[in-house]
């Protein structure tokens, strides 16, 4: 065991997470190497510094109160962010990248219309009170971007331009 190898395993050695044979080899090396001993001491000092215990407040009264009264979320900000996400998606989906898969403009328009309607419904029903509601359209956009549309099997036989089907 040399210094280089020891240093690369020292953190796991310090955590007692090495296989017994490696632990034994490192222990043997450290006995004879002052520099590696110093490195190990530095790890111990760092550990002590990170493990400074600080008083923990009793948060149960807060949790209990919060459970009884649901906290309202800032709705306007979430609407703004969702609108921004949709705008970004709209720009991406309508740009004509030469290497990208073909885009069915009608499907894109439908998709964006659906997302905007969903957002509108959420606002109308006042259900946009959780971050998850914001993340749903974002997740859908990502799913949509990753979705590879199916081509109709007849297209391959006839050699026609494939017809895209985005209805998953």
């Amino acid at each position: 065991m040399n210094c280089r190898k020891t240093r690369s395993l020292l953190s796991a050695f310090y955590d007692n997470e090495l296989e017994p044979i490696l632990t034994k080899q490192i222990r043997g090396h450290i006995k004879s190497c002052a520099r590696c001993r110093k490195e190990l001491a530095a790890l111990h000092r760092l550990g002590h510094q990170l493990d400074q215990q600080q008083p923990v407040p009793d948060l149960w009264p807060r949790i209990e109160t919060a459970l009884a009264t649901p906290r309202p979320q800032p709705r306007r900000r979430m609407v703004a962010i969702t609108a921004a996400l949709l705008l970004i998606a709209a720009v991406f989906l309508t740009l004509d990248f030469p290497t990208a898969r073909p885009v069915d403009q009608h499907a894109v328009d439908n998709f964006l219309y659906q997302q905007l309607s969903m957002l509108e419904n959420n606002i109308a029903s006042d259900s946009l009170n959780d971050w998850d509601s914001l993340l749903v359209p974002a997740d859908d956009i990502i799913d949509y971007l990753n979705y590879i549309p199916e081509t109709h099997s007849d297209d391959e036989k006839t050699g026609r331009k494939p017809k895209l089907d985005y209805r998953a």
Binding site: S8, L10, S11, A12, D15, E17, E39, A42, L43, R45, L46, Q49
Partner: peptide, 16 residues
């Protein structure tokens, strides 16, 4: 986990 912890500790030791 092992390698990330090792790198993190090296970085913190250097900062200290």
């Amino acid at each position: 986990v092992r390698s990330a912890l090792s790198r993190a500790r090296s970085k913190l030791k250097n900062i200290r």
